[in-house]
Simulated scan of single mutants.
Amino acid sequence: MSAYDSTADSVPSPQGGAGHKESEFRVDSGDDAIAEFVDTVNDLGVDGRWLVQGLTDFLRRQKRGGGPGMTAEERKFVVESGSMTEAELVDSEKRVAKGSLEKSAAELWLGTYQETWSASTVAHFMGWTEDEVLAAAEGQRIYGVPVRDRLRFPRWQFSLGSPGRLIPHLETVLPVLTEHWDWISISAFMSVRQRSLVAEGRKTPRSWLRDGGDPAAISEIIEGDKYW
């Protein structure tokens, strides 16, 4: 029996570390912002508890190490190089202190999560049982991403017009992809047009494979760790 629950098309989750510092930015359970967040999640009509648990996991992974900021020499270099004015640097530091980087990371995670399916949706699309979906994921015949106790399946790997309703050579490229990147990076890569994948214009890795391109070209990009 699989360790994953295949039910429901709900929402994803984040992770992080333990402990926290006292801060002017801290919130507590009675804060209006928390109440608004709870109301918003409940209005989504999904498994809100699972979604919040997932987001919590993700945000824990964003936990800061608490190291020092820029040195005086580094600040001087940034300003004198013309990259930022002193005022712009101060404003940037304020936004970072408030959590702008974590907010951007959470937005990216949630946006990527929206482009995934539950096991039940995949089963319906593929004409499989949910057990067959989970077995295919375990055998790396399809790509499943663990979010808490469930697997989610990025949509880029599915193709209605392809044999078996999967992009060709998926089993060939999956081991290479998963060895090098996490699921968010993989999803981004598969949807970005590549300079080296050209056939009547630049193609994304997904469209390259879907349209019959050689999977070796994908592996070359990944193995070379190029700036795709």
Score class of each variant (00 low, 15 high):
13 S>D: 15
41 V>D: 02
33 A>H: 06
90 V>S: 07
182 D>S: 08
205 P>C: 09
41 V>R: 02
23 S>W: 02
106 A>D: 02
52 V>N: 05
67 G>V: 10
83 S>H: 12
10 S>F: 02
163 P>Q: 10
212 G>Y: 00
196 S>W: 04
113 Y>V: 10
218 I>S: 02
112 T>W: 06
147 V>P: 00
170 L>Q: 00
180 H>M: 07
186 I>Q: 00
107 E>S: 10
71 T>A: 11
226 K>E: 15
221 I>R: 04
134 L>M: 10
92 S>I: 08
69 G>V: 08
33 A>E: 13
124 H>L: 09
135 A>G: 06
65 G>D: 14
23 S>F: 06
178 T>Q: 11
101 L>T: 11
113 Y>N: 10
110 L>C: 07
84 M>I: 07
121 T>C: 01
73 E>S: 10
150 R>K: 13
203 K>W: 01
54 G>K: 02
9 D>V: 12
37 F>E: 14
37 F>N: 12
166 L>P: 02
75 R>T: 07
177 L>W: 00
131 D>G: 09
80 E>R: 08
48 G>D: 08
51 L>D: 04
144 G>P: 00
33 A>S: 12
60 R>V: 07
170 L>C: 01
228 W>M: 11
180 H>N: 08
98 K>H: 11
133 V>T: 08
89 L>I: 07
95 R>T: 10
156 W>H: 04
57 D>H: 11
145 V>C: 02
68 P>Y: 15
66 G>E: 12
121 T>Y: 03
33 A>G: 10
124 H>E: 14
36 E>D: 14
15 Q>W: 11
151 L>R: 03
186 I>L: 02
70 M>V: 10
228 W>C: 04
133 V>W: 02
226 K>C: 02
140 Q>V: 06
124 H>M: 06
100 S>R: 13
107 E>M: 12
209 L>Y: 02
213 G>D: 07
94 K>S: 12
144 G>L: 03
124 H>Q: 12
91 D>N: 15
189 F>H: 01
89 L>W: 01
219 S>R: 12
196 S>V: 05
221 I>S: 05
223 E>D: 15
